[in-house]
Design a protein around this nucleic acid. Structure first.
Lengths: 154, 154
DNA sequence: CATCATGTAACATATGAAGTTACATGATAC
DNA sequence: GTATCATGTAACTTCATATGTTACATGATG
């Protein structure tokens, strides 16, 4: 299973950064990501190492995107977020000599790599910008819906 | 990440059943699977529900394969073992109304299904019998290697 | 130099998987 | 039939890991 709870949280945060024209504090992001500032820093630190975001200290400091959202794909984010290899076989006993595991690996090793490659390829086809646009569209529609409901209630 | 620790343990157990001509006890399997009898029963219960194995009580009781190993694929075993959907997105807040998650789902929903389908397709191409044969080959080779080493040491 | 924000270590909590104990149920042997 | 063996299962106890929290150091800004 893919560790997505993090991924979706991080995406929340990144979309916020796109929206804001200035650095966003960990505290602010913590609200958006439904967690707390220290966790935000921990997770964002991974993205920073991959050159996806920047952080600045002091007054007016916080987190900003380091690159054009159109040039950032979900694949990079997924990796930066600490992608556990999607499929990993049996490290239960850390027994590389186990003949059963060898047989399974021989039969499925390529499959594991293939599946992971497909997944990353698809993630690589979605840019942060595309996601942001889609999100904004949904947001606008959502607001319109709310407005309509208010009108209807009058 | 795929929950494989279980899968590889179960495969150990199933290969044992193929080898033995008689029912194998949970205690015996526990040794092969590096765990304990109760855990074995818990896990095997899932396989039994899928009609892959049978269990019998009393003297001479234990676990046996319910079907021809040539007709059992790793896909079935994987599913029976309690396959968590490979890719599942953000149930962090169980917030189906979240617009970010909606956007992600819209962008990647098909991908998730596609990746999972590929994985299961590949697992479905490997039968338990094929795995058992490969395992036996390795075992024979392994024994030969040990024998050679003993000869060389003389 | 006071304030604000990140960086990070150290610790606390929560969740779920795995292991364990205990006992009930059913099957076989004698 | 009853002693024994094996599964079935509930209840409980670890154990591992992700997450949350506190505390304080470091660096930047006004």
């Amino acid at each position: 299973m893919i560790r997505d709870s993090r991924l979706s949280g991080v995406l929340h945060g990144l979309l916020h950064m796109i929206g804001a024209g200035e650095p966003v504090t960990s505290e602010h992001l913590a609200t958006a990501m439904a967690t707390n500032p220290v966790v935000v820093r921990r997770v964002m630190a991974g993205l920073r190492e991959q050159g996806l975001v920047r952080s600045e200290k002091g007054h007016g400091g916080g987190w900003t995107l380091a690159r054009d959202p159109a040039a950032i794909t979900l694949a990079e984010i997924y990796r930066a977020v600490g992608a556990p290899t999607i499929v990993a076989m049996s490290h239960r006993s850390e027994n590389p000599g186990c003949l059963v595991e060898q047989a399974v690996n021989d039969a499925l090793g390529d499959t594991f790599r293939e599946v992971e490659a497909l997944f990353l390829k698809r993630l690589g086809a979605v840019t942060l910008e595309a996601l942001a646009k889609d999100f904004k569209r949904r947001l606008a529609k959502h607001r319109q819906t709310l407005k309509d409901q208010i009108h209807a209630a009058k």
